[in-house]
Each structure stands twice: as structure tokens, then as C-alpha cells.
Nucleic acid binder design. Structure first.
Length: 530
DNA sequence: TTAGGGTTAG
């Protein structure tokens, strides 16, 4: 009888479950708990709570079922209260509480529960790792994963996925490879969820070949896996390849979803395929089950604007059936920056200010626009405003993985690295070589560079250049130098990278905030279109 | 009868 009751609950047939419950001649803790769990899993928290209050005895499981209901509904305060009132704290309840704290960004609270637990299971560890990962405590996530392995606890699915996500974010390819090896040992390479995370890890670490190999080997693929590969090629600026996968996907009979279209349109945008992009967008509007949303319009604004059709992009915004959000205005602003369209840039920046008053980008752009159009007073007002308010202006940093360690560089502070002496020497040597080949740093990127990494020293100390210099010193000949940057690469550094790759005959793979640049032989895979 | 999973545009 209780089994049937929970069967109804799991199928969401709560009313029938309740009838059965009321009809039961004998009810025990288990059946009461099943009913509570049914209500709380289906969002009927008040009913669950009523039963919980009147039930004759409560087991640990009843408490936990009630707790999980609150957490899943996002009522973290109620959950916390209940948790504190519990006579005992079973592992399942602690784990659930940690997940709840993690989802609400309360990492310290999750950690406090974690540390107080006498008994931990694999779920405890993965809940802690996930809380760190989702709140961008990436180093803590890694060390917790290490700690877990040292204690001989085998990784489980959620922890493997979390840790792959961390590897993707930090672009630590070698660590990611080790996780891949561990996956093979645990047969997690058969699981579609972890394999998708694995593909994304290889893509975000800049190793497309490996991503492609894993992708090709896995059958049957689901839509997410196809999407991972399409967006991966898009990020690397490989438009043809992305469209090829999209085509294969259609042949395989897999229906695209909204994210597929984001990936394909981005691929077109990054590679200047305006015609194909338009066709795909039109066919999506006409005969697809997926209606284009704000995210697709933003891809189109980006596609048109990037290609120089800034007016058309603005028209599209004016005529589209959805409300323009910050992302759309941001895409338009980016296009104006690229094509130096001060007039529309001002409009876009002002719209953006209304929607996101806390971000520094639009203010910085506006000040550049005012400067370049001779509106000195407006420009200085804007600059004062930027410095007077504590706006979200992240400092630029770049990093490189070497010898199982992440080496971090920031623009102003090269002395922070223990090996700064040889790095500085290398930077100076590069300067000499760049000069010889006719390179000169110019200031024509003012309108171009919105992220404005603080230029405390001269341009050559930008963080990405420090990281590349370090890579040149350490990464063995013949291996590509993989550098990551948290912001968009600056135009000046982009030009320098092309030359550095040529002069030193090295391949440099740079991941910036948006996409990848593969520098080789004096050229970049983005063909300066980024 | 209790928790825990992947992809996304600027």
C-alpha cells in the first residue's frame, strides 16, 4: 500500500495518493512520511507541513522529507529553521541543507555544516564541491576534490561533473586529463552527462581535437552533446565546422533546440557569415518549433553589427517582438565600438545604463566616445563618475597552467611572481624583437577597449603578455602555449601576439572572456574579427 | 519513505 502511495506521488498524482492515504486502515511512520514527501516534492508545502505537525511519530526520514521540500522550493530560511529544530542531523539532511546553502550563495554556511558533520558520505563531498564550484570558489573546489580522493572516497557523478566544470573555468588541461583518466577507471565515460561535461572541458581548455574524438566515440548523442560541440567550434572561430556539425545533427534526425540556434548563430557571427546566419534565423522564425527569444535576437544583433550593419541591427531591435535586454544592447554597443559609430554607441550605452547601472563598461565607453568627439567636459564628468563610484570593474588577469600549478599574472603587479626577473628579461627581449619587425604600440584602440585593463606600466606589461612570456620560458618547444584571460584581449596585445607567434615560431592559444584566439605564423584564427 | 548531474549569446 505504501509503495503504491509513493508511486502515485512520484507520478505527481497527489490527489489519488491522498485518497489512498485516507483510506488506509493502518498508517505507520513510513506511510505518513511518503505522503509528506509527496506533497513537498510537488510544491504543496503547506499541506506537507500540516501533516508533519499532526503525525504521531516522526522519523529522521520524515524530518528530511520536509526539509527537502523547503529547499527545493527555495525557502532557505524555513529549511534552516527546521534543520536547527531537528533532534538529530542525518547525513541526507545535512547534504540537502548544504546543497540549499550552495544554491543561495551561502558558501560559508554550507562549509559550517560540512565541517560539523561526524559522518560523511560521497554525497557530502560532492555537495561541498558543488557549492564551491557554483559560487566560483574554484581553488577550494579543487582542494576539496583532492582531499576527498586522499581519504579514499571514490568520485561520484556530481563531483566529477563539478570538477570538470572547474577545469573548464580555469582551463587547466592537465588536471582535466587526469579527471578523464579517473573517469575511464570508474566507467563514467559511459555516462552521457559526464561525457558532455568532459567535451566542454576539452573545448574550454582549447583542445578541440580531443573534444572531437570524445564526441565522435559516444553514441547515442543527445541534443546537449551536439550543442556542446557546435558552441565549441563557434567559440574557436571555426564557422564551417560548427555548421558541419549542425548539418550532421539534422541528418542524424536530432531536433535542434534553442541553444543549438544560439551556437549556430554565434558561429556565423564570429566568422562573418551574414548571409547564412540570416537564412538560419529566418528558417527558425518560419518553420521551427522554437520561437526566437531575446537570446537569438541578441545573436542576430551581434551578427549584423559585427559585420558593420549597425543601422540594420538597431532596426532589428526596434522591430523585434521581444523586449530588448542588457545583452542585446551590449551586443549593439560592441558593434559600435568595433565600427566606431559614436552616435548609436551613445544610445546603446544609455539604454544599458538604465538596465545595468552597476556595470562599468557603458560608462567607460561613453567617456571614450566623448573624448573622441571632443566633448571634453562630458568626458571628464564621466571619468569622475566612474572613479567616484565603486563600479564593477574587474581587474584584468591572465594565467597559464604549468607544472600542475596555475600561474597568475595581473597587469600592474609582475613582481608578484617568484620568477619575475627572468619573465621581465623575456618581455624585454620580446620588445626588442617586436621593434625589429616594425611593430609599434599605438593608441588607436581607445574606443575599442572597453575593459580597460589598468595601464599602470607600459602596454607591454599587460597580463596576457606576461603569461605568454612565462609560457615561452617554460613550455617545451613544439607545444602550444595556452593562456587564459578573464577579460577580452586588448587590441594592442592581439597585434603583438600575432607577431610573437611568428617571431618565436610558437603556437599561442589565448582564451579571452568571449572566445579563443589561435595565433600562428603571424595570423590569428579570428582573422582580427572579434 | 530522504539529496546529488551536462550545454548558452555580450
Amino acid at each position: 500500500r505504501t509503495a503504491m502511495l509513493s508511486g502515485y506521488c512520484q507520478a505527481g498524482r497527489i490527489a489519488e495518493a491522498r485518497l489512498l492515504f485516507d483510506d488506509m486502515p493502518k498508517r505507520n511512520v513510513v506511510s505518513w512520511t511518503a505522503m509528506i514527501s509527496g506533497y513537498s516534492q510537488n510544491g504543496k508545502l503547506n499541506l506537507a507541513r500540516k501533516l508533519f505537525e499532526v503525525m504521531p511519530d516522526r522519523s529522521e526520514v520524515s524530518w528530511t522529507a520536509m526539509l527537502v521540500g523547503y529547499i527545493q522550493a527555495g525557502h532557505i530560511e524555513d529549511a534552516e529553521q527546521l534543520f536547527n529544530a531537528m533532534p538529530e542531523h542525518p547525513v541526507a539532511a545535512c547534504n540537502a541543507m548544504m546543497v540549499g546553502f550552495g544554491q543561495r550563495g551561502m558558501v560559508d554556511a554550507a562549509k559550517a555544516v560540512f565541517e560539523r558533520m561526524q559522518e560523511k558520505d560521497d554525497g557530502t563531498w560532492s555537495a561541498m564541491i558543488k557549492a564551491y564550484e557554483q559560487n566560483e570558489f574554484l581553488i577550494e573546489a579543487l582542494s576539496t576534490f583532492r582531499d576527498m580522493s586522499w581519504r579514499g572516497i571514490r568520485p561520484n557523478y556530481p563531483s566529477v561533473i563539478s570538477i570538470l566544470t572547474v577545469c573548464s573555468a580555469l582551463a587547466i588541461l592537465n588536471y582535466g586529463r587526469e579527471v578523464h583518466a579517473a573517469m575511464l577507471r570508474c566507467s563514467f565515460d559511459m555516462d552521457i552527462f559526464t561525457v558532455s561535461a568532459l567535451i566542454t572541458m576539452y573545448i574550454k581548455c582549447g583542445n578541440l581535437d580531443k573534444a572531437n574524438r570524445v564526441f565522435n566515440m559516444f553514441e547515442p548523442k543527445d541534443v546537449v552533446m551536439w550543442n556542446s560541440m557546435i558552441t565549441g567550434y563557434a567559440q574557436h572561430g571555426l564557422g564551417e565546422e560548427a555548421l558541419g556539425i549542425f548539418n550532421d545533427m539534422t541528418i542524424a534526425g536530432m531536433a535542434p533546440d534553442g541553444i543549438t540556434y544560439i551556437g549556430v548563430l554565434t558561429a556565423c557571427s564570429y566568422t562573418g557569415k551574414v548571409k547564412v546566419g540570416r537564412e538560419i534565423f529566418n528558417s527558425m522564425c518560419k518553420n521551427s518549433a522554437i520561437r526566437p527569444g531575446a537570446e537569438h535576437y541578441s545573436c542576430m544583433v551581434d551578427l549584423l553589427g559585427r559585420a558593420g550593419h549597425v543601422d540594420e541591427a538597431l532596426d532589428l531591435i526596434k522591430n523585434m517582438p521581444v523586449e530588448a535586454d542588457a545583452i542585446i544592447w551590449g551586443a549593439l554597443m560592441g558593434a559600435c565600438r568595433m565600427h566606431k559609430n559614436a552616435e548609436i554607441a551613445e544610445l546603446a550605452a544609455k539604454k544599458l545604463l538604465e538596465l545595468e547601472p552597476e556595470s562599468a563598461g557603458p560608462y567607460v565607453l561613453l567617456s571614450h566616445i566623448y573624448t573622441s568627439t571632443g566633448r571634453w567636459e562630458d568626458a571628464s564628468k564621466m571619468r569622475k563618475f566612474i572613479s567616484s563610484r565603486n563600479l564593477n570593474k574587474s581587474t584584468g588577469c591572465s594565467w597559464i597552467e604549468y607544472d600542475k600549478r596555475v600561474h597568475l599574472f595581473t597587469s600592474g603587479d609582475i613582481l608578484a611572481h617568484p620568477e619575475h626577473a627572468i619573465i621581465l628579461k623575456m618581455l624585454e627581449k620580446l620588445d626588442g624583437l617586436l621593434m625589429e619587425s616594425g611593430y609599434s604600440a599605438d593608441g588607436s584602440f581607445v574606443l575599442h577597449d572597453i575593459d580597460e585593463e589598468q595601464k599602470l606600466h607600459s602596454l607591454r606589461y599587460h597580463s596576457e603578455r606576461q603569461a605568454v612570456a612565462y609560457g615561452l620560458l617554460k613550455v617545451p618547444e613544439g607545444m602550444p602555449i595556452r593562456v587564459m584571460k578573464n577579460l577580452r584581449v586588448c587590441g594592442d596585445c592581439h597585434a603583438a601576439m600575432k607577431l610573437i607567434a611568428k617571431i618565436t615560431s610558437r603556437e599561442i592559444i589565448l582564451r579571452d572572456a568571449n572566445r579563443f584566439h589561435h595565433f600562428k605564423d603571424g595570423f590569428c584564427s579570428c582573422r582580427d574579427y572579434w
